[in-house]
């Protein structure tokens, strides 16, 4: 449906915005390496079913997400490493990994390796942006392009919510993927005050600056 496709396109756009920023400005300043590494873990643990993906649409996106995220990690860890300031990126990701691991082991859809990793990736994705938001809070401002990246990334998960409602209403089975929905709503809520500042500042041509 339209919400789902727009969400996935927004997700892909966010990655291209981030790559564009890093390559054009030859800098990854303002970007949390920890958040990016968490996203790589998210894609790898979620797409373990890659060889058995029945839908060409999903298959292509999975390849795109894993490969572009690997490239981002390469750029941040190797090519533009000196522009990356670890002193600003101090969020304790152990807590996020622990949170996702505990929920994944306690409440998977089924007790299989793939399902536990899938649930882990969903919970981890819901909080993976926290090191990035924490970094923004520490520096107090961000380049416009970084704000656009975060806006596109947040829009992706926000659009999945009307997608789930649409699917619930239109599909005869009326099934709800509880883990995905609860984690998806949590993820969207974490973006809410970023969205507000983006709307009140960046969309009106001002610098992204925290009050």
């Amino acid at each position: 449906n339209l919400f789902r496709v727009a969400g996935d396109m927004s997700h892909l756009a966010s990655i291209f915005i981030l790559l564009h920023k890093i390559v054009q400005l030859k800098s990854c300043s303002g970007i949390s390496f920890k958040s990016q590494l968490l996203y790589l873990i998210v894609y790898i643990t979620r797409y373990l079913d890659l060889p058995w993906t029945p839908s060409p649409y999903n298959f292509i996106f999975k390849i795109l997400f894993i490969s572009s995220q690997l490239y981002i990690i390469y750029l941040m860890a190797r090519a533009y490493r000196p522009t990356n300031d670890p002193n600003l990126d101090t969020f304790r990701v152990e807590y996020l990994l622990g949170f996702a691991a505990v929920l994944a082991v306690l409440f998977p859809v089924r007790y299989t390796v793939l399902e536990i990793f899938w649930a882990f990736s969903i919970w981890l994705e819901s909080v993976a942006i926290l090191p990035q938001l924490f970094m923004l809070q520490r520096t107090g401002e961000a380049e416009a392009i970084t704000a656009h990246y975060l806006f596109a990334l947040g829009t992706y998960r926000a659009l999945y919510i009307p997608n789930w409602i649409y699917r619930y209403v239109t599909e005869p089975t009326h099934k709800i993927d509880t883990i995905a929905v609860v984690a998806g709503v949590l993820q969207t809520v974490l973006y809410s005050d970023f969205f507000w500042i983006y709307y009140t500042k960046v969309m009106k041509g001002e610098k992204f600056k925290l009050p």
Binding site: T53, P54, F65
Partner: peptide, 10 residues
Amino acid sequence: KIMVGGHDEL
């Protein structure tokens, strides 16, 4: 609809 892994979203 047949879904191998059961999760058809990204």
